[in-house]
Design a protein around this nucleic acid. Structure first.
Length: 641
RNA sequence: CGCGGGGUAGAGCAGUUGGCAGCUCGUCGGGCUCAUAACCCGAAGGUCACAAGUUCAAGUCUUGUUCCCGCAACCA
């Protein structure tokens, strides 16, 4: 490629609340594959990643751990960066939102938006109960009084800064419609337009006074900048955007070509972020790609379910490139992916050991066996050879077009098709027959040459996905021509000698490995729960604050316009109460009526969907929820202790 | 009737502008021996969710029904 175009690609910044699991790690691997591919093609790539380190949650976690927030985020940020490095990702910069240059610029941006009138000081308006120090909405009040303590409330206001989103919504809508590639996958586009933009954007609250761990608003220091302006702006501060001036890096790389993010934050990247950029007078990113999540089988990964898979553990078991391969190959565009240990082993064996590893191994072994490791130039061309070459040329084109559409899994699968094609070519040409007699050995030279050359091309196309493996292959076949353009010109391999034949991926014994994993994770799980329970110890006094009683369900009714809510009337002996609960997915009138259940009776009432709920039911489970019931018979109203 | 996506072989998925229903894994049978019990070939397996319509022709277009998923709402 003669002319080097720039290509700026980013991941979302990872929140430093806890160690990232494989689902979070997928994003950096995915982005890395795209970045490496673009570099290979000659683009001048800048690849940014980093960490999002402020917020109330981190303040709390640090408090619990009894360390300063900065110390807390330092250690998690390091853990995150170590995993990114372990995954062999080629980011050019790792930004932390606690970096001083970032904090400085965020303050300037906030000030600028305030000065030009896009951010204004407003109020959370509401009814305030002074003793309870909380705000309530009209619907939350009980008989016009504080639902907490029953005292009078008064109209009050709390300061907050708001961003005038509505001002830019027409421009945003036009941009989205004029740039069909902006939101990827496309199905998300309608979601954003219909759910948020068309109904009219609400002004966004961009500051908080309820916690301290954030970037202070410099002209009003009791406020800290809330996550939107703090986190999203990393994409420009990292390049040296300074509000009043801009570094060369920024001038060169902005706007971003692709923001790779999880599907859960598409809204922030396709609505708030572009509007912030418009307000700053900067260009908008070209593409925002919201990828799917890795699920454990069909379930969400969650610590409480004990099904969290971590990248570093997988690397220990299978190696970096096998993990990269699985993640990249198994997530199809615009969908969620599924990851289980079983599936990883299966894919490892069938794709990496059998198809790819074995191909390289058998080819290099044959060259040693028949020609003492020497590669000869081809002397003739038969139809099978032509067919091999044309297949590879088509595959190379497919890889490129798929990558350009961000169809990474499809691209990688195409690369593997080269190996499949080669295995077939071996069978068709039967080198072991050609090797038997001197007259056919001439033909054998050509066959083996074609294989080595095909493998060379394969290794180049494999680089973005599995860089280490690509290098290992190139070493074994002793390839020198490694430029991307040469994948399109079959025949670049020169005479020479191949290296030693070393298996790339040793076949795994699935039963043995699964058993090993099973043992290891059950030990880890036990350690983790023990630790969890130690941290959250409460005293008997604290527990007794919660008042529990036996309740009997008198009536059940579905709450309109809410698919999770049931309205229950519950007999508590001395009184009957209405409780609204989010269990409609699992319970209905027929399996709930007359049941004796456990009720929290001294919980602050809330209005849910307009109905006042006085208490809470106890239930267990996440995907499948079961209510706690009473063993045996006790009258409604019995105290639980 | 809040908005959107989807239902294709046992599993996971592809199928672009209508033109012989495909890929990977798994199962069964065969071949081969260079290679990591690897590789290659063949077979079985489909009412393309259901129903109606347009058309010479529908997985593909239209309408209705149904189920699943996402967003929103809402779950303490």
């Amino acid at each position: 490629m003669e002319k080097k175009e720039k290509f700026y690609i980013t991941t979302a910044i990872a929140y430093t609340s806890k160690k990232p699991h494989i689902g979070n790690t997928y994003e950096i691997i995915l982005t890395d594959a795209i970045a490496r591919f673009k570099r290979q093609q000659g683009y001048d790539v800048f690849f940014l990643t980093g960490t999002d380190e402020h917020g109330e949650k981190i303040e709390q976690l640090a408090n619990e751990a009894k360390i300063p927030p900065k110390q807390y985020v330092d250690s998690v940020a390091k853990e995150i960066r170590d995993i990114w490095d372990l995954m062999n990702t080629s980011y050019d910069k790792f930004i932390r939102t606690t970096d001083d240059y970032h904090e400085e610029t965020v303050q300037k941006i906030f000030k600028k938006l305030y000065d030009q009138g896009d951010i204004y000081k407003g109020y959370y308006e509401g009814l305030y109960c002074t003793p309870c120090e909380s705000f309530f909405t009209e619907t939350q009040l009980v008989d016009g009084k504080c639902p907490d303590c029953g005292r009078e409330v008064k109209q009050a206001k709390e300061e907050a800064y708001f961003f005038k989103m509505s001002k830019y919504q027409d421009r945003l809508l036009k941009y989205i419609e004029d740039n069909p590639g902006f939101i990827q996958p496309e199905s998300r586009k309608k979601e954003m337009i219909n759910n948020f933009i068309k109904p009219g954007l609400q002004d966004l609250c961009v500051s908080r006074t309820s916690f301290k761990w954030g970037i202070p608003v410099d002209f009003d220091p009791k406020h800290v900048v809330y996550v939107w302006i703090d986190a999203l702006t990393n994409y420009i501060t990292a390049l040296g955007y300074k509000c009043d001036s801009k570094d060369d890096l920024y001038k060169k790389y902005w706007p971003a070509d692709v923001h790779v993010i999880g599907k859960d934050i598409i809204r922030f990247h396709t609505i708030y972020w572009p509007i912030m950029l418009m307000a700053l007078g900067e260009e908008l990113p070209k593409t925002v790609y919201g990828h799917g999540w890795y699920l454990f089988g069909e379930d969400k990964m969650s610590k409480s379910k004990g099904n969290v898979i971590y990248a570093d553990y997988l690397v220990k078991k299978f190696g970096v490139d096998a993990v990269r391969y699985y993640c990249l190959a198994e997530m199809s565009f615009a969908q969620d992916g599924s990851i289980t240990y079983d599936a990883i082993i299966n894919k490892y064996n069938s794709d990496l050991a059998n198809v790819l590893g074995n191909l390289v191994n058998r080819t290099v072994s044959m060259i040693h066996k028949y020609f003492d490791g020497k590669i000869y130039l081809p002397t003739d061309e038969k139809d099978v050879d032509k067919e091999l070459k044309s297949s590879i040329a088509i595959i190379a084109d497919n890889v490129e077009s798929n990558m350009n559409k961000l169809y990474v899994a499809d691209a990688l699968n195409e690369v593997m098709n080269i190996a499949r094609k080669c295995n077939k070519y071996i069978d068709e040409t039967e080198p072991w027959v050609l090797g038997k007699e001197e007259v056919t050995k001439e033909r054998l030279k050509t066959v083996l040459y074609n294989l080595v050359e095909s493998i060379r091309i394969l290794s180049i196309l494999l680089e973005p996905f599995m860089p280490e493996t690509a290098t290992k292959i190139q070493k074994q076949i002793n390839a020198n021509e490694l430029a991307y353009e040469t994948v399109k010109t079959f025949g670049k391999t020169q005479e020479g000698k191949v290296g030693e034949a070393v298996p790339l991926f040793a076949r795994l014994d699935d039963k043995k490995v699964l058993e090993e994993i099973h043992n290891e994770i059950s030990v880890e799980k036990k350690l983790a729960t023990v630790e969890d329970e130690k941290v959250n110890v409460i005293t008997i006094d604290e527990f007794e604050k919660v008042q529990l009683k036996v309740g009997q369900v008198l009536s059940v009714e579905k709450v309109e316009k809410a698919d999770k809510l049931l309205k229950l009337e519950v007999d508590l002996g001395t009184e009957k109460r209405v409780i609204v609960s989010g269990i409609a997915k699992w319970y209905n009138e027929s399996n709930l009526l007359n049941k004796k259940i456990v009720v929290v009776t001294n919980l602050k009432p809330v209005k849910l969907r307009g109905i006042e709920s006085n208490g809470m039911l106890l239930a267990a489970g996440e995907e499948d929820v079961k209510l706690l019931t009473i063993d045996g018979d006790l009258p409604a109203g019995t105290n639980i202790h």
